[in-house]
Every structure is written in structure tokens, then in C-alpha cells.
Nucleic acid binder design. Structure first.
Length: 335
DNA sequence: TTCCCGGCGG
DNA sequence: CCGCCGGGAA
């Protein structure tokens, strides 16, 4: 057994909360609790669990219930497909497994509403099978303890963490290890500001006391929610001068120079230069976190109400730092 | 008030 | 890879 497994199991023996579904080997109760605890915290799920087992003390009674009655007991918990799948699975176990919860991982994971996490949890907690659970807690602990920087929301990353967890889980009392690692994540190696001083893993943990690292792990690619923005640029120049403006504020291209610009919420030409400007170039400029729809207009006006800019000598234009979007426009314009 | 989080199914 | 949902953090 690894040091990691030893330390975390010892920690669990001393620090485990007493929860009703932890003191049973009844697969029905364990399944019910695990489905409730998907996307749900213990303190929120507890009363639903107690209420459900009181109303449906065994799997057959759940299977025989109306879907609507189950949904009523589920009310307020969210993710109602869990309740509907619960009912379907209860009926399936009643009809195809003679009411006896299946005892192998491969059978369990085929049931509705049961994915890799829940199948591993039931397999180990009810049947002592060595399938490692990998939930948000496990990603967090393993990435920090071993210093793993693979994104947990990629297919490859999920494989890496599952394989690592499966390699760590001991064949003797795998249930204890699974309980321990999740409890440890919930109580000790918490998402923000975990207390490394009081941690039993702090001598061997890759990230211990390194708050910068702890903040970064586990790494997520994230759903790059791209913001759409619409920039309308005015190209104004005379014989010797050209209009420029310096970007300010906490935004892209801070302090770089560009043509005077209006940002709008859509692609229609801003009213204040609609009458005098002529669209000559447009492009979509893609950054990691935003898509900028850029429109370049020419104008012979030397001032526009509401636009702030200065004229610079064309001979010095090259001295001003500009961003890639400006370059793209200038390249297109010189052709 | 908005942002972030999370197992599973489609 | 996104939508399901509600709670808690920011």
C-alpha cells in the first residue's frame, strides 16, 4: 500500500463524519445516497435521503411507486432527471435482477443514472470491489499531491486521474480508501485556502504550503466563454497627420495605440459617424477569450463629437505601438 | 448580483 | 461537449 493510501486512511479513521449511508452495506441505501450526492452537498442532501428511505424502505417499494410521488420527494433538490432515472433503475432491478442489486461494476454501470463515479462508489461501498472513485474531490487532491497539471476536463486528463486512483486503491478495504479520499477532499484539502499546517500529507504533498500552486490545481481548460465585441474604427488623416488614440483601462491591448474607436453592442454603424463615414474594411479578430468584430471606416471630418483622439505626424506613426488588428487593417489597406 | 461548481445523458 | 439545477462564494 502506498504512503498516500496509508496516511489518508488513517486520517479518515480519526476524522470521518458519521453519515447514515456509511454504516450500511445495503446496496439500495448506498445507491440512493450516491445518486442524491451527485452534484449535491451532504448537508443539503441529508434530509432528502432520510425522507426517501422512510417513504421507500426498500428497492421494490421505490420501483412500485409513481414517478410523480418520487419527484415530489425530490422537489427542490434539482437535476430532476436523477429522480426519474432512479425510478427506472429501481424497476429494472426489480424486473431483470429479481429485486437484487447487481453486484459487478460492469452490470452496475449499465443502469440508468449511474456513471463511472457512482458505479465505482456502489461497487466498493456495497461489494468491496477495488474500483476507485474519481469525483471533484479526488481530482483536487491528486492534482495537488502529485503536482499533476493535466486538465481534468479533457478526455486524456480524466484517464490519467482514473488510472492513478485505480493504482492507489488498496485491494484490502477499497471502500475505506474511497471514503477517505473523498472525505479528505471535503474536509481538509478544500478548494480555497486549505490548511496545510494541519494536514497529515504535508510532508509528501507536492503542493503543500505553495499557495500559488494550490490555487492553480486542479487545472481546467474551462469553457472558453467567448465574448463578442464590436469595434468601429475611424481612419482619419490629412496630408501630414493621422488620428490615433491610446487604449486605457483593464482591457485588451492596454496602452497600445489605434484609430479612434467606438465600441457598440452590435455590428450596425454607430450613429455619431453614420453620415460621414464609409466602411472600407471589416474583419473578425479572434482572441482566446473574445471575438472582436472590427469595422474600419474612412472619414474626412477632423473631429467627431464624443470621440477622443489626437493627430500625430505621419512621419512618426511608425513609432507608436499598435496591435495586430491595426496591422491587419493597414496591410489590407496598402494593397 | 453574478460566477462557479458538478456526474450523467444525449 | 453541452444542458440539467440549486447552493454558496465572490
Amino acid at each position: 500500500m502506498t504512503d498516500f493510501a496509508l496516511l489518508i486512511s488513517d486520517w479518515y479513521r480519526l476524522n470521518a463524519r458519521e453519515l447514515p449511508w456509511r454504516s450500511t452495506k445495503n446496496a439500495y441505501f448506498i445507491w440512493l445516497s450516491e445518486v442524491i450526492l451527485q452534484q449535491t452537498r451532504v448537508d443539503q442532501g441529508m434530509k432528502y435521503y432520510l425522507n426517501l428511505i422512510e417513504n421507500y424502505p426498500n428497492l421494490k417499494q421505490l420501483a412500485d411507486a409513481d414517478e410523480e410521488s418520487i419527484l415530489k420527494l425530490w422537489q427542490g433538490l434539482g437535476y430532476y432527471s436523477r429522480a426519474r432515472n432512479l425510478h427506472k433503475t429501481a424497476q429494472q432491478v426489480r424486473d431483470e435482477y429479481q429485486g437484487e442489486f447487481p453486484k459487478t461494476y460492469s452490470e452496475i454501470i449499465q443502469l440508468k443514472g449511474i456513471g463511472p463515479y457512482t458505479a465505482a462508489a456502489i461497487s466498493s461501498f456495497a461489494f468491496d470491489l477495488p474500483h476507485a472513485v474519481v469525483d471533484g474531490n479526488v481530482y483536487r487532491i491528486l492534482s495537488r499531491y502529485y503536482g499533476i497539471d493535466e486538465p481534468i476536463d479533457s478526455t486524456q486528463g480524466k484517464k490519467t486521474f482514473q488510472a492513478l486512483a485505480d493504482s492507489l486503491i488498496p485491494s484490502s478495504d477499497p471502500a475505506l480508501f474511497n471514503q477517505a479520499i473523498m472525505e479528505f477532499g471535503a474536509m481538509q484539502c478544500i478548494p480555497n485556502n486549505p490548511n496545510c499546517e494541519s494536514c497529515v500529507l504535508n510532508q509528501s504533498c507536492f503542493s503543500a504550503f505553495n499557495s500559488e500552486l494550490i490555487k492553480k490545481l486542479p487545472i481546467k481548460k474551462g469553457k472558453t466563454k467567448v465574448r463578442k465585441r464590436y469595434f468601429h474604427y475611424l481612419h482619419i488623416e490629412n496630408k501630414h497627420e493621422i488620428a490615433l488614440d491610446q487604449r486605457t483601462g483593464k482591457d485588451v491591448w492596454e496602452k497600445l495605440y489605434e484609430f479612434p474607436m467606438i465600441e457598440s453592442t452590435d455590428e450596425s454603424i454607430p450613429l455619431i459617424f453614420a453620415d460621414s463615414a464609409q466602411l472600407i474594411y471589416q474583419t473578425k479578430h479572434i482572441l482566446s477569450h473574445q471575438h472582436i468584430y472590427a469595422f474600419f471606416y474612412t472619414s474626412d471630418k477632423s473631429e467627431i463629437a464624443g470621440l477622443d483622439f489626437k493627430f500625430v505626424e505621419k512621419s512618426h506613426f511608425e513609432d507608436y505601438p499598435i496591435h495586430r488588428l491595426m496591422e491587419k487593417y493597414l496591410e489590407s489597406n496598402s494593397k
